[in-house]
Design a protein around this nucleic acid. Structure first.
Length: 818
RNA sequence: GCGAACGUGGCGGAACUGGCAUACGCGCAGGACUUAGGAUCCUGUCCCGAAAGGGGUGCGGGUUCGACUCCCGCCGUUCGCACCA
């Protein structure tokens, strides 16, 4: 009747793990009814990029932690959908393919097959029916569709923008590939800046909403660190735009400190500022031209970092400070960036470090407009004065004497009244450039026609397939390799039918990953990106677990795309991830695992030696899940020994014929406490303490020589999220014919969390001197009496007056003697 | 530079809302079983001290009957952002 693995006394993961993996597949255990689930729970983890090396320990740590949570929810009675897929487009795959000289179209499926094997081996609860890869045409067809929706809605536009160009690779680099202004692969080769027409998404239009939702608990429950990273990235700042009139035109500046306007003694424009031409009277000043050229030659990254030295050139032009009515000189300098604010600032050297450095270097006047009580407003300054509590305005005309905060409001009101400026809110967030001059990505579905201009590819013609290209390497034209494929490149215009050509850039990988979670439940629908009923039932995602390295870009882009699709009527919600938790990082020997350090741990050999269950438990035990930890192979014996012990307990328990006598109360208490601690630990992703609690229970049972079936069965169920194969085997051992995941999560009896007696700590003047055992809930008087009877307490109280008593019920008594 | 998190035995880490610091695990030491042990089981394991007792959570101060926990100032580590006006 039973077909369970014969027991020879020892735990053999190499036998039971394949057995249960096969059975889960056969019985469709991990495939929830997507159309009928009554308590759906969408358990999402960040899908991996399928590298040639395979999954490393860090991936497995993240996936296991997410899988444990999903299995826990399953045991709590939810129908859990836990899909997995592959983020297989992008520069990583492409560069690796170039390096080894194998086409990514050949390499990626191979890598995916390896990943699939590893993921199955770790015992993840994946619903393989819904696996996807962003490189599948029936996936990226919809990535292109999303682009078209944004284009139609006016949320996508084209403009010239700077890209990093490596003259040695003869290709465009991503910002991450630029190290100290040099190409990552060609040290010593300076990266140049080139300007190309590129596609952008108007994410800045959504900055306010993206920011506001972060503080809306009805929409989002996210890790605090992640929320904060997003806030900083969006970077809201309140300030004012102020117009300075010049003969050549109005110069509008943005400032967060309009109250310091009386101290603005010069202006600085970004070198690219459109008004520079006019100010120099059309190139009359060669030094300005030279400076602009020098700045333009710098790469995008080093323009932004390092170089604290302020350099700049006077344009020859002047503008009027609307507050003082004085003429101030207009300069250009590369510390002012065209893509923030208005690309122009008012220089307030008295109160801004950068402006101070600049003014000092070029001999510009420095005026103090903020001072503390009793400070001489006209004393020379040796540094910019920071705004501190209690300062007031000085040298500021009718506003002198106002406290700083109030002065700010008064000046903004006055600027608005005179029409010289207005209060505004600015964000640091930039529009999202999605163009990549590369091969390995979804072609951007646009066609260029001499008569009609840019024409979107009609939706019925999607997908625009990525054509097979023998030589997919980028070349020195700065144009995607796709341009070389004549048959693909040249197409008739969809609008007028005349000869036209395709957009040759592909889209950013982040666009692929910005919507994959929408696709998972609907992978079998060929005619739409996501099916309405499925989407309504399963989304927003109930739990999303991933790395904090994606705290900003991926999570922000996914939120943005969801919000746009919501606004366009395609989705009933605007936030995609109800709950997000960031897992920690696994380090090895105190350092982040990386190929260059040579400390990457490949999990396969560990799993082969110890089994997936032991490995999973080890990963979850080595530190708090949200903090990560240090991978040392020595520690893995602990969890393995623990499983061995449980194995023996189950064996004894399943064979024991007679039900033991009355259980001792302390054991019952421990049992209930364990259920409580494990349940709470799992809910808070405190996996290491949940495991510790189970270890304690096992120690207690072994010491008391108890193998009570009710307790051991509960233990097996609680162990199931961590060690699923092991738990299934034990469950079967108890004679069950169904999956342990169809069992109910054990509940605890709140009345049995505490024993009949408790140990109360007795302190004398805050120092622990003794402990007394008293009935739970004992009154203060009882405890005091018991305490005073103790020899060790008497010694310290005898002959002394007890001045104060502090009693914390069932915990502690503190007698303060004088 | 700005922001955030963190700092506890030989090691990874635990400690609810301010209430027994070091749970759980690794390692180590001693013992048992054994032809053997890199298996298993038992005992011990923060420091000083024979004990009584004292000290102890990066350093210095503070609040409190009581501080790993709260406050102030340093030092250090890690992670973000990085000329954002």
């Amino acid at each position: 009747m039973t077909d369970h693995t014969p027991r020879d006394g020892s735990y053999r993961p190499e036998l039971i793990e394949p057995k249960w993996q096969a059975r889960w597949a056969e019985r469709h255990v991990n495939e929830p009814d997507l159309d009928g689930a009554g308590r759906p729970f969408y358990n999402l983890m960040m899908f991996p990029y399928p590298s040639a090396e395979g999954l490393h320990v860090g991936n497995l740590f993240a996936f296991t932690g997410a899988d444990v949570y999903g299995r826990f929810k399953r045991l709590q009675g939810y129908q859990v959908f836990e899909p997995i897929g592959f983020d297989a487009f992008g520069i990583h795959s492409e560069n690796f393919a170039i390096k080894v000289g194998i086409h990514p179209g050949e390499l990626i499926p191979r890598n995916i097959a390896n990943f699939r094997r590893q993921l199955a081996r770790m015992g993840g609860m994946f619903d393989w029916r819904h696996e996807l890869s962003t490189t599948d045409a029936d996936y990226y067809k919809w990535t292109q569709w999303i682009f078209l929706q944004l284009l139609k809605a006016g949320k996508a536009y084209k403009k010239k923008a700077a890209v990093n160009w490596c003259p040695e690779c003869k290709t465009v680099l991503a910002n991450e590939q630029v190290v100290n202004g040099e190409c990552e692969r060609h040290p010593g080769v300076l990266v140049e800046q080139r300007f190309l027409e590129q596609w952008f998404f108007r994410i800045t239009e959504y900055a306010g909403r993206l920011l506001a939702n972060l503080d809306d608990p009805s929409k989002m429950d996210w890790s605090e660190s992640t929320t904060l990273a997003q806030k900083n990235w969006i970077g809201r700042s309140e300030g004012a735009e102020i117009d300075f009139a010049a003969a050549e035109g109005t110069i509008r500046v943005f400032t967060t400190r309009p109250d310091t306007i009386f101290g603005a003694t010069f202006m600085v424009l970004a070198p690219e500022h459109p008004l520079v031409e006019a100010l120099t009277s059309g190139g009359q000043r060669p030094e300005v031209e030279a400076y602009r050229k020098a700045v333009a030659a710098k790469d995008v990254v080093s323009r932004r970092i390092g170089e604290k030295d302020k350099t700049g050139v006077f344009t020859g032009g002047y503008a009027v400070n609307p507050a003082t009515g004085e003429q101030v000189p207009v300069w250009i300098a590369d510390y002012v960036l065209m893509d923030y604010g208005t690309g122009a600032i008012m220089g307030v050297p008295g109160h801004d470090e950068r402006d101070f450095a600049f003014a000092t270097r070029y001999g510009l006047p420095i005026v103090r407009v903020l001072a503390g009580p009793g400070e001489d407003p006209d004393a020379p300054l040796s540094a910019a004065v920071p705004d501190v509590e209690g300062m007031h305005l000085v040298n500021s005309g009718q506003f002198s004497g106002h406290p700083a905060g109030e002065g700010l409001r008064a000046i903004v009101a006055w600027l608005e009244h005179t029409g010289a400026g207005k209060g505004v809110v600015r964000y640091r967030l930039h529009d999202w450039c999605i163009s990549r001059q590369r091969y390995w990505g979804p072609p951007i579905p646009v066609i260029y026609c001499d008569s009609c201009g840019s024409v979107p590819v009609p939706e019925r013609d999607l997908p625009v397939l990525l054509p097979p290209l023998e030589d997919f390497r980028p070349d020195d034209t700065g144009v995607s390799p796709l341009a070389r494929h004549k048959a693909w490149y040249e197409v008739p215009c969809p609008a007028c039918g005349k000869p036209a050509h395709r957009e040759t850039d592909v889209s950013d990988t982040f666009l692929d990953s910005a919507w994959y979670f929408l696709r998972y439940p609907s992978t079998e629908f060929a005619d739409r990106p996501f099916e309405t009923g499925r989407t309504g039932r399963w989304l927003p995602v109930a739990s999303y677990i991933g790395g904090n390295e994606h705290a900003v870009l991926h999570l922000l882009y996914a939120r943005f795309i969801t919000m746009v699709l919501h606004d366009l009527g395609h989705l009933p919600f605007e936030e995609p991830f109800r709950k997000f938790r960031a897992h920690g990082l696994i380090v090895k020997d105190g350092a982040k695992m990386s190929k260059s350090r040579g400390n990457v741990v490949i999990p396969d050999e560990y799993i082969a030696r110890w089994g997936a269950d032991t490995f999973r438990m080890y990963l979850m035990f080595l530190g708090p899940f949200e903090e990560g930890g240090d991978f040392r192979d020595a520690g893995i014996t602990g969890p393995r020994r623990f499983l061995d012990k449980v194995w023996d307990l189950v064996d004894q328990s399943a064979r024991a014929t007679a039900i033991g006598g009355e259980l001792h109360l302390p054991v019952v208490v421990k049992w209930n406490q364990t259920k409580k601690r494990v349940s709470e630990g799992l809910e808070h992703l405190s996996y290491n303490t949940a495991i510790a609690a189970m270890m304690e229970l096992v120690n207690t049972l072994r010491e008391a020589n108890i193998c009570e079936r009710r307790i051991v069965k509960d233990l097996v169920v609680m162990l199931a999220p961590f060690a699923p194969h092991f738990a299934e085997e034990c469950w079967e051992q108890f004679g069950n014919r169904t999956s342990v995941f169809d069992a109910a999560w054990p509940s605890w009896d709140p009345a049995m969390i505490q024993g009949a007696e408790v140990e109360v700590v007795v302190q004398i003047s805050g120092k622990t001197r003794s402990k007394v055992r008293v009935p739970a809930g004992a009154t203060e008087a009882t405890v005091v009496a018991a305490a005073l009877a103790e020899e060790s307490v008497k010694r310290f109280t005898e002959g002394k007056e007890i001045r104060k008593r502090i009693y914390v019920k069932d915990r502690l008594l503190n007698l303060v003697v004088g």
